[in-house]
Simulated assay, not measured.
Amino acid sequence: MDLWLIGIGTGNPAHITLEAQRALRDAAVILVPRKGPDKSDLAGIRHRIIADAGATAQVVEFDYPTRDPAIPYKDRVRAWHDDIARRWQAAIAGASSNGPIALLVWGDPSLYDSTLRIATRLTPAPRLRVLPGITALQALTAAHGLTFNTLAGAVTVTTGRRLREFGWPKGAETAVVMLDGKCSFQTLDRDDLMIWWGAYLGMEEELLDHGPLSEAGPRIVEARAQARADHGWIMDTYLLRPKGAE
């Protein structure tokens, strides 16, 4: 079985690479996850990308499971991945077409995404092909006209959970934080930091803010909560570095 994991960027169909478009046209089956009615526009974007590519593959939708909050985090995520793999397996088994199977992955399959880990759970083991997409890191820095790193400086890409637990990453001049539903920048006891934040990057709904963390942080917390209430979901990320860093 050939399984193609296709990065589709951060929500802007124009970010799809020519290679990804060709793969969608060559695929026999395309899997599209459904994440509930409050996130139906995510499936809608995937369908638009498929149509824009001129793909004629059989499209098979499947429902995403939810995580069990009652069990420890890593165990919870592993159980969730097992459930997702079972749903992939069922969706693939129910397809009427034979040939390469494509799965559209938000952002890039290699960056803080578990699609590759889930794929290893399939039986038989698939022959994987990974097509990179525009990452949230690229979309964020481009939206703000910002360099990813300071001059010869180190960058740490981390998560909100680790920022809360361990604080500022050791040795980093720049920290990029992903998967942060709790605005963990609020836990940093530093008055020298700047923040560049973006949500719905590349989409019509894109939201941006930046400035000294002490000033922009409260605005971001408020804007994030309002956007989540308005849309039912949010994807965002942010970059932090000391004021005056080159």
Rank of each mutant, 00 (worst) to 15 (best):
D41T: 12
L42W: 10
A43M: 09
G44Y: 08
G44V: 03
H47V: 08
R48L: 10
I49K: 02
A51G: 04
A53H: 13
G54D: 09
A55H: 10
A55S: 15
T56N: 13
T56I: 00
A57H: 08
A57D: 10
A57E: 07
A57R: 06
Q58G: 04
V60H: 08
E61N: 13
E61Q: 14
D63I: 08
D63L: 11
Y64G: 11
P65L: 14
P65Q: 05
P65E: 10
T66E: 14
R67D: 03
D68G: 11
A70F: 05
A70W: 01
I71W: 04
I71Q: 14
I71L: 08
K74F: 10
W80M: 11
D83I: 01
I84F: 06
A85P: 07
W88V: 04
Q89M: 06
A90V: 11
I92H: 05
A93S: 10
A93H: 12
S96W: 01
S97W: 08
N98V: 14
G99L: 07
P100C: 06
I101R: 07
L104H: 06
L104R: 01
L104V: 01
V105K: 00
G107D: 05
D108H: 09
D108L: 09
D108F: 03
D108N: 02
P109Y: 04
L111M: 12
L111Y: 07
L111P: 04
Y112D: 00
T115F: 04
R117C: 00
R117H: 13
I118V: 15
T120K: 12
L122P: 02
L122Q: 06
T123K: 13
P124G: 09
P124D: 09
R127H: 12
R127E: 14
L128S: 05
R129Y: 01
